[in-house]
Design a protein around this nucleic acid. Sequence first.
DNA 1: CGAATAGTGTCTCTCAGACATTATATG
DNA 2: CATATAATGTCTGAGAGACACTATTCG
Lengths: 259, 259
Amino acid sequence: MAYAPESQEERDFLEHYDADRYRHPSVTADILAFTAHGTDLRILLVKRGGYPYKGRYAIPGGFVRIDESAEEAAQRELFEETGIKGITMHQLATYSAVDRDPRTRVISIAYIAMVPETALADAHGGDDATDAKTFSILRHGNGFILVGDDNEIVTEDRLAFDHAHMIDDAINRMVGRLDYTDDAFELLPDESDFTISELRQVFEAISGQHYEASNFHRTFMQRYVDTGKVVVTGDVSHRDGYEPYRGRPATTYAIVHND
Amino acid sequence: MAYAPESQEERDFLEHYDADRYRHPSVTADILAFTAHGTDLRILLVKRGGYPYKGRYAIPGGFVRIDESAEEAAQRELFEETGIKGITMHQLATYSAVDRDPRTRVISIAYIAMVPETALADAHGGDDATDAKTFSILRHGNGFILVGDDNEIVTEDRLAFDHAHMIDDAINRMVGRLDYTDDAFELLPDESDFTISELRQVFEAISGQHYEASNFHRTFMQRYVDTGKVVVTGDVSHRDGYEPYRGRPATTYAIVHND
DNA sequence: CGAATAGTGTCTCTCAGACATTATATG
DNA sequence: CATATAATGTCTGAGAGACACTATTCG
């Protein structure tokens, strides 16, 4: 990938290139970190400690440094604010309206990270974030309402910047990708020990609609087991931690990663 | 959308905010302008007049100014280089690898524009572009080969920067969107006077695969006519300009735009 | 008439939703 | 036993590909 100049003239040109003839916008990488809690879709937000939008909730993110890609910046910022490392992300979109940040001209490249709930358990906010916590996303009409574990309610119009739009876009993207990607598996508590109904709940959390258990079972078998993407771990088990066990124990499965 | 500071303290903060404490990357908007020629998918490229990659073909684009959004920059650049105005675009992705431009750190926001072939007819290159022309995209294995009207052949590895990757991504995106958007109509010579087989050719150009004419006819009727998205213009006509007419004349249709 | 393209009809296969039924656990 | 969840099976209707057939034009 290293570029090789073809002449001395070109070497001179590159050496004396002045990138700063014009004013450049600031560029940030924002991370929309989603997880699933039962059939609830949740997102990680941080309460802003400084101006502007002080005290409002915002999507975590930060400036892209001159020597790192936006992906690297997203990974770094997520780690700094939550301690989570090495999560698969995919790019959502870039937001570039001139007045979207009152401070100065900021262009934000947004990434979607889908993480197991356990990974966000100890997200208490890092450097700049006063407070980091997850909110359940309740879809309502064309929009949504956010509800915290402590029942704090945040409506779309109370979010900082254009972050409500980002969340809308992200939900639409995730729903669209549900059928033809394996994104959903990334929200499972344990990709190597899950039941079909756990996966079904993740699908319900993302899509926001109900799946008939028996039909989901059939589709799961055809799409994942028959193709070898998922294998039976042989075990049959109930889930720990919850109330007294009810009903027939379920087969557990594990994803096959071929990297 | 105008942001209202909540205190004098915040007004002071915003007034004295220094955006330039750190070096900012340059940001460009790149436009992948596609069109259809028969069942060929074509893309508009410009031959680079300056370093780096001098003489190579590249995707048109340019720097995003401090007072315009990336969308506005894309529209402006496309107009400056081709004279095309007011085309619907949608964002593809943002490319941010640190070494993707040998001059300096450049982050590029790529847009897909789908335009009728006639619109690109007089694209001769504007300001910076020495030469602008369209290439047919021949899919081959996982990649593609470009062929100009004059039979000039450009392989993926001869394109400037990471533009081959962008084209790959754009094709995948367009194919994915084909079923659930009306993108294809934008490639028609005339959205208000087209035949089913003309639309079918556009679908074939984008997807790179054959559609059975009779099945396409049925799907077209169900998806567009029965829903009122397109209407019969009543006319029956052959296409001008081409060889002596052959076969039964086709019904012509027009899109209904409800804006 | 033949050739070429437009348009209709039919068969089959796959897939998804609805729902009935059986299987296996707890209490 | 009742209850709850897991898993299997069945029916139906929608949609897509393959393909036979009819319709309308030109020369």
